[in-house]
Simulated assay, not measured.
Amino acid sequence: MAEEDTANPPQARKGRGAASNLAGRFATRVSRRENDGWQLEEEPLGRLLTEAIEEKARTIISSNSSPDLPFSQSINPYRGCEHGCTYCYARPSHAYMDLSPGLDFESTIFFKPNAPELLEKALRKRNYVCSPIALGTNTDPYQPLERDKRITRQLLEVMQRFHQPVTIVTKSQLILRDLPILAEMAQDGLAQAAVSVTTLDNDLKRKLEPRTAGPAARLRTLETLSGAGIPTAVLAAPMIPALNDSELEAVLGAAQKAGAEFAAYILLRLPHEVAPLFRQWLQEYYPDRATHVMSLVQQSRDGRDYRSDFSQRQTGTGVFAQLLQQRFRVAIKKLGLNRRRLALDCGRFSPPPASGEQQSLF
Rank of each mutant, 00 (worst) to 15 (best):
S107F: 02
L270N: 02
A27Q: 07
S172Y: 00
A18K: 05
E82I: 07
G80K: 02
A194D: 12
L324S: 03
I60L: 13
F328N: 11
K125Q: 15
P241L: 14
L45N: 08
R47L: 10
S31H: 03
S63W: 02
K149S: 11
R329P: 14
G84Y: 04
L174R: 05
L282N: 04
G356T: 05
L252M: 06
S65L: 10
M294R: 06
P352Q: 09
T221H: 04
L40K: 07
R177N: 13
A115L: 05
W281N: 15
E3P: 00
D245S: 14
T86P: 03
T170V: 03
T167I: 10
V293G: 03
A233C: 13
K125E: 13
R269N: 00
E157C: 14
L248S: 14
T50Y: 15
R206M: 14
T139W: 08
R33P: 06
G17Y: 00
Q143M: 15
T232M: 11
Q164N: 06
Q164S: 13
D302V: 02
T137Q: 03
D5M: 03
V297L: 02
D245T: 08
T170N: 06
A260V: 12
E41N: 07
L208G: 08
G37S: 11
G347E: 02
G102R: 09
E146H: 07
Y87N: 10
V274F: 07
A27S: 08
L48E: 08
R269C: 15
R218I: 05
K56I: 14
S300I: 06
F26Q: 05
P113V: 11
Q280G: 00
L119Y: 00
R327G: 15
R327S: 15
G46L: 07
G227S: 11
L119A: 13
E357C: 05
I168W: 14
A90M: 06
S226I: 00
D288R: 04
A18T: 03
I266G: 03
I168H: 01
E54W: 04
Y89D: 06
K207E: 12
T317A: 13
E261M: 05
V293T: 11
L342K: 04
P238T: 09
C81T: 00
H163P: 07
S355P: 01
Q298W: 00
L118H: 01
V293H: 01
D302A: 12
A237Y: 05
S350A: 15
L45Y: 03
I332A: 01
P144H: 05
A290T: 03
E184S: 10
Y265A: 14
V129C: 09
V197F: 06
